[in-house]
Design a protein around this nucleic acid. Structure first.
Length: 317
DNA sequence: AAAGTGCCCAACCGCGTATGA
DNA sequence: CTCATACGCGGTTGGGCACTT
């Protein structure tokens, strides 16, 4: 029993396609100014445009909308695109959201036509980081590649970090397993407690616990979380410093290399999940919170939705 | 000058998700 | 819950322009 499927608008022969004329632009602009955007499927007939709604939406969003910045991408914008792409991958709308006046389409085009070529150039031999991603100035604080682990192992070792007063500290060394962390008892009797191994400074403001914890974690020792889970980073946002540090660090999109979902993308979203495993109590007052826990795909999905609240990180803009 | 080539970017297309009946 | 519809996103296409041969 075939369900009646609506024909996609672009398959209709009677609608205009291709480049927009100045007259079409004027009609669309006048209509949206008078009636607002949205309701794109019905907009063409109401506005008197022989276009499909999708085409109208795209034209408005990418070209006609007020505030669109046209022209060359500045060096500052380019640097930001590169940093964001490293964190987010091909999530163009998220990247565009951090570049006022630029559209996702424009950034995607710029990446594909200009920056991707640079990405294909020789990679950093030691860390396999495409040239485009490498810091181009010495001003960005990055962790010492000569003395610490390369990217993949680095990711595999991240477990927790926090920021206080814009200066990183390892989370307090009390038994905070019951609260939120992935501690374990290190083979000793008694309550779970975090295991503190070496620390690695990845920027002026971010310091993380490293290596030993994760290796034990995955060796099936008595861990606070579930053995074999992906590592999770816990950040306390005090101000914009952390975001800037992340952008300036060598953290790569993708988080855990085997994860398909870049966990750090959530940081740059206006709404992000807050939770942990074991779960933190959700924010009861509904106010924006300053703490976020991000993890890779598996970990995120292990957080029951009932234990997840959202918070607004627009202030990080 | 004409033909060939490469690049840029606006627009298209298909898919996934949200929403509401 | 199911289904239809609308929207948003990201990969892809192709027209037009600049540059080269």
């Amino acid at each position: 029993m075939g369900r009646k499927q609506r024909k996609p608008c672009w398959e209709k022969e009677e609608v205009n396609r291709g480049a927009w004329t100045a007259e079409e632009d004027r009609i669309l602009t006048d209509y949206v100014k008078a009636n607002g955007d949205g309701r794109w499927e019905t907009l063409p007939s109401k506005a008197g445009l022989n276009r499909c709604g999708k085409s109208c939406r795209l034209r408005w969003r990418n070209y006609l909308r007020p505030g669109i910045k046209r022209g060359n991408i500045s060096p500052e914008e380019e640097e930001l695109i590169i940093k964001l792409h490293r964190l987010l991958g091909n999530r163009w709308s998220l990247i565009a959201g951090r570049l006022p006046g630029r559209t996702d389409n424009e950034i995607k085009n710029y990446w594909n036509s200009v920056l991707s070529k640079r990405a294909l150039k020789g990679k950093d031999r030691k860390h396999d980081i495409p040239e485009v991603y490498r810091p181009r100035s010495q001003s960005s604080p990055v962790w010492d590649k000569e003395t610490t682990v390369p990217t993949e192992a680095f990711w595999a070792s991240i477990l927790e970090c926090s920021v206080e007063d814009t200066k990183a500290k390892i989370s307090n060394q009390n038994d905070d397993y019951d609260n939120n962390c992935f501690g374990f008892n290190n083979g000793e009797p008694g309550p779970h407690r975090p295991y503190y191994a070496d620390t690695t400074l990845i920027s002026e403001n971010i310091e993380v616990k490293t290596s030993t914890l994760f290796s034990r974690f995955h060796q099936g020792e008595d861990v606070g979380g579930n053995a074999g889970e992906d590592p999770v980073m816990k950040f306390d946002f005090e101000d914009d410093v952390l975001l800037l540090d992340l952008l300036n660090s060598d953290i790569l999109a993708g988080g855990n290399p085997s994860s398909s979902l870049p966990p750090l993308a959530d940081i740059l979203n206006s709404e992000i999940c807050v939770g942990s495993n074991p779960p933190l109590a959700p924010s009861s007052d509904g106010l924006p919170c300053s703490q976020v826990l991000v993890g890779s795909n598996n970990t995120s999905s292990s957080i029951p939705s009932s234990d997840v609240s959202t918070c607004d990180l627009e202030t990080l803009n």
